[in-house]
Every structure is written in C-alpha cells, then in structure tokens.
C-alpha cells in the first residue's frame, strides 16, 4: 500500500520500518546547543529572515542518511545555515572564516 508511494523521507506516518520500533520515552534533557539553536531560529523568524516553512523545507532537503543520524537541533543548525547561505545573508567565505575564529 503506502510503502510503494514516492514519499519524502521526513513524511513518516505509518512507515513500515518504524512500526516495530519502541518509542524512546526517556526525557533526553535539552543542552545549551539545543536551546541556542532553538533561540536563533526564533529570532530569525521574528525578524522575517527565516520563516518556519523555510526551516522545514531546508530540513527536508537534508540527505536521508544525515537526517536520521543528526539530532533534532543538529538538523536545525544545518537547515539554518543552508538557508542563510542561499539567501545571501552570509557567504561561505565568511562562514569558513567565522568557524575558524570561533
């Protein structure tokens, strides 16, 4: 049935390979990285630099192997970075330099 559909990898409703997987109900408290990424997205949203749909679209563009390997907020920082580069808010050269300095 739906297994034959050309679904996108993030479109997870009813996907067979997860049906026998127990839900991990442990709390997994957020860390500073998580909170900071969350806050940056909120600020970019408030300033109309990046809307929530632009965040999602860029998360959805992450290759599946990376999507499944990365944590929730690791996906976000990758999506935020992709968006800021594409929109020209930052350049790749600036980012490389900033990453070396930081």
């Amino acid at each position: 049935m739906s297994e034959a559909t050309p679904r996108a990898m993030h479109d997870l409703g009813g996907v067979s390979k997860f049906m026998c997987e127990a839900v991990d109900a442990e709390p997994h408290a957020l860390n500073d990285f998580d909170r900071t990424v969350d806050a940056i997205r909120g600020i970019l949203g408030g300033k109309k630099v990046m809307g929530v749909d632009e965040l999602r679209r860029n998360i959805e563009a992450i290759p599946e192997a990376d999507y499944l390997r990365l944590s929730y907020y690791q996906r976000w920082i990758r999506a935020i970075t992709a968006h800021l580069l594409r929109q020209g808010v930052i350049t790749e050269a600036e980012l490389i330099a900033a990453m070396e300095d930081a």
């Binding site: 559909t5 050309p6 679904r7 996108a8 749909d53 679209r57």
Partner: peptide, 18 residues
C-alpha cells in the same frame, strides 16, 4: 499527486492520505 517526484517542494499533506 506526488509533487515530490517533480523536484524540490514542501508539502503539508502526508503521503498516507493521498
């Protein structure tokens, strides 16, 4: 409909309802 097969898109209608 499967816009996913036609290039980059962002869809809010889950696959399992199509």
């Amino acid at each position: 409909d499967w816009p996913e097969t036609r290039g980059p898109c962002h869809i809010r209608t889950p696959h399992y309802l199509r």
